[in-house]
Design a protein around this nucleic acid. Structure first.
Lengths: 193, 193
DNA sequence: TATATACGCAAGCAAGTACTTACATTACTA
DNA sequence: TAGTAATGTAAGTACTTGCTTGCGTATATA
């Protein structure tokens, strides 16, 4: 037997299958098979199929990780800070990539997921706005409403994430770090007074 | 009876249900019901369930991608052009929103969709690159590789689209046109020499 | 040693699903 | 008016799916 707990193995299998095929198409039988567990064991652990997804949501919605991720060491050098943020953001998003995918897929049938997914940009927006306001105080960026600035920067990074995660090299062969560098340069110049 | 053809009514119902619940959860019975058609009629028209989705893919892949705006209405005033492009892009994306959603959901089971979805940014990228190169010739934007510039601008707009389409007002209450204006201003300044 | 806990295995059930077949009905067309 | 194409209706089939039940087995703990 493997070292990880049964519950954990079932969850991992479920995450993989649901993110790949969707909730309905990921049968309890296939999940059990991938987890190397008898199908009955799933029901003993989670009650019913919905229970698996509820457990997945709980597992990922452990928010503090996100909070920690964005609180980086700021130097108040605009370009450096934004690049660091972008890199950290993408690292985080890739670490929860499967969950984001599940979120986009099953939001209709599981409203709780929508809640969690929407929470990510909300938290990030607040943090970014604080940073931009401080930068305005130091007169290092333009003096306009910081919320659309923050939203735009998030949109930019999120766009890169989806592009890399779902389209891969189907659209461009430029690697992600290179793309990030360019877009951060553009954005920094764009909000510098 | 309604004026639209039976085939069309079935397709519309299928698009609505599949984009909302996913392919597996959208049963032929429910599609028939929504279309106001007997279930058997579906099989007479499309052979089997997969046939419906194939028809959906074909229906969308024949539509032109953006097309008109970029080539015809450019003024070579950077900010004006980019804003016009952004608005047109979002209008287009919203018009095929359901299809994009289906694409993200069922790409795993229907590789043909992935092909079509990836085609959208690819075509747009080419168009944008041409424009940026012309702008470089006119010395109106910085002289760096145009591909990452184009990719960044697409990422930015795509991010706004997803944000508006899936998160709605859960993250920000600023309306989309306002957001677009700010992000275009930032981007324009960012690539101006 | 005795008992509880966790899991596997086999069988099965009720409900749903995609899909078929056979026949009746309507509407348009030659 | 006769015939053809498109749809509805009814019934059914083969299969899958989530879930349950009953029982046997291994491991750990008291």
């Amino acid at each position: 037997m493997s070292t990880t707990s049964t519950t954990e193995r079932i969850l991992e299998a479920a995450i993989e299958l649901v993110s790949e095929k969707g909730y309905a198409a990921a049968t309890t039988k296939s999940i059990a098979e991938l987890a190397g567990v008898n199908e009955v064991t799933i029901f003993r652990h989670f009650g019913n199929k919905r229970g698996i997804l509820k457990a997945i949501i709980e597992k990922f919605s452990y928010g503090p990780i996100l909070q920690k991720t964005i609180q980086l060491e700021v130097t108040y050098e605009l370009q450096d800070d934004l690049l660091l943020f972008s890199e950290e953001y993408l690292r985080y998003m890739f670490s929860i990539k499967d969950f984001v995918l599940i979120g986009f897929r099953e939001a209709g049938s599981f409203p709780e997921i929508d809640e969690e997914i929407a929470n990510i940009p909300r938290v990030i927006k607040e943090e970014l706005m604080k940073y931009f306001m401080e930068m305005q105080r130091r007169e290092k960026i333009m003096d306009i409403d910081v919320e659309p600035i923050a939203m735009s920067f998030i949109a930019l990074n999120f766009g890169h994430f989806i592009s890399a995660a779902r389209l891969g090299s189907n659209v461009t062969t430029i690697d992600l770090t290179e793309l990030l560098r360019t877009s951060v340069i553009i954005f920094s110049r764009g909000i510098t007074p």
